[in-house]
Design a protein around this nucleic acid. Structure first.
Lengths: 213, 213
DNA sequence: CAATAGTCGTTACGTTTTTCACAATCTCGC
DNA sequence: GCGAGATTGTGAAAAACGTAACGACTATTG
């Protein structure tokens, strides 16, 4: 594992996948060149921030010209390890879980949902979006060499499943339940809380009015 | 609209809904008192940060004692305008949209999905999670007094729908499509990009190793 | 009532992140 | 090959954010 890029700010790291997708779009559209200003309008990130972000990886552009899309794309593919796919498990095949299974991550991404788990027997054995669904009892048995899990179970089950994932050797959990799960230090958890996101938006609307007109 | 709390940092504002929910939980559990340390363990936010966040609203706690759950709850209810429900529209009743419709926001929140729209005729007229589903053609007609929309349509349709929402007088959009939509300055958009979240987690796992052991 | 332990509110400081602004450099048309 | 215009990369400043530390105050116990 190269540690040279250890110095990349977290805020920058979070934007990288976004950049990657839009550069990919540009490439598909046949564009061969792009400026930080254009990219800024597309991804809604300040152009200075984009230039700064890119600069952590060295001089990727040319002054007076901008960035070569092809070069940028191949660079990001390498940086984001697009060549090597990360296998992901999904726990909880409800509506939200199903949405993920239909989401074609592999197309533009380095991730692939390899297997899904649920408790409901009528779902077991079926395949959604090319992903087979197994009974949750099989979790420990079938999680070898899977290091990332998406948690879309009811919140009451979240901590219990998280404990089992940890025991099975998970490295990262994307937690969509409202519960804040507790895990050992070596496991990284990202929380995405849909109700909180909605409420936060409402709060901002009421208390941080934007420019009128 | 009170503007006194204009000075609350955005980072704090984003945490308020989270605090609210956990305080609500404590109240339901019959706890009458809580310290910033306890709350910290529950919501996974540093206790000093919690005290700081609360302090923007004045002295809510008592030294040597902690915070009174009931008081905190009534305070947050007021601050987050929990008494007055915000009506929300949902556009796009796919898997993700359906997940939202089943999510009982109203229970713990000040938001209620009032109406949903889709293009597929077999869904029109049905009701999911108490929310009626209308044809997208009805959008302009039935959006009066709705100021917030959840956008869960295919990304190719995102900008077009966004334009119509803006024309219909929307104030805020929670955008779950990978597309970054363009709107006038007075409309607030929060982007939640599931693929980006997953990729970001993977990137962090590879490049920012956590403490081993 | 004194002593002890607990907890807040806030100050001070360090870190991270964003933004400004411009010299350096490149492109492109003529 | 020159000059006008475009765009990068970055130094420096500002803004935003997080956290350690501690004085002030409270509750509780003996």
């Amino acid at each position: 594992m190269e540690m040279e890029q250890n110095k990349i700010p977290q805020a920058t790291a979070k934007r990288l996948p976004l950049y990657y997708r839009f550069i990919n779009n540009l490439h598909t559209q046949g564009k061969s060149r792009v400026s930080s200003k254009e990219l800024s309008e597309a991804v809604k990130v300040d152009s200075a921030t984009i230039r700064r972000d890119f600069s952590y990886f060295g001089a990727l552009g040319k002054k007076g010209y901008g960035y070569n899309v092809e070069y940028l794309l191949s660079f990001f593919r390498q940086t984001l390890d697009q060549d090597e796919t990360t296998e992901v498990a999904l726990i909880g095949v409800g509506n939200l879980g199903t949405a993920f299974l239909h989401y074609n991550f592999t197309k533009n991404n380095n991730t692939k949902i390899q297997i899904a788990f649920d408790t409901q027997s009528e779902k077991i054995g079926s395949v959604i979006g090319n992903v087979p669904i197994e009974h949750i009892d099989q979790l420990e048995a079938k999680m070898s060499n899977i290091s990332v899990a998406i948690l879309t179970v009811p919140s009451s089950a979240a901590q219990g499943i998280a404990d089992r994932l940890v025991a099975a050797g998970i490295s990262g959990i994307l937690n969509f339940t409202p519960a804040r799960i507790t895990v050992p230090e070596h496991v990284r958890v990202h929380h995405i809380d849909l109700a909180v996101e909605l409420q936060a938006l409402v709060y901002f609307l009421k208390h941080y009015p934007l420019e009128e007109e």
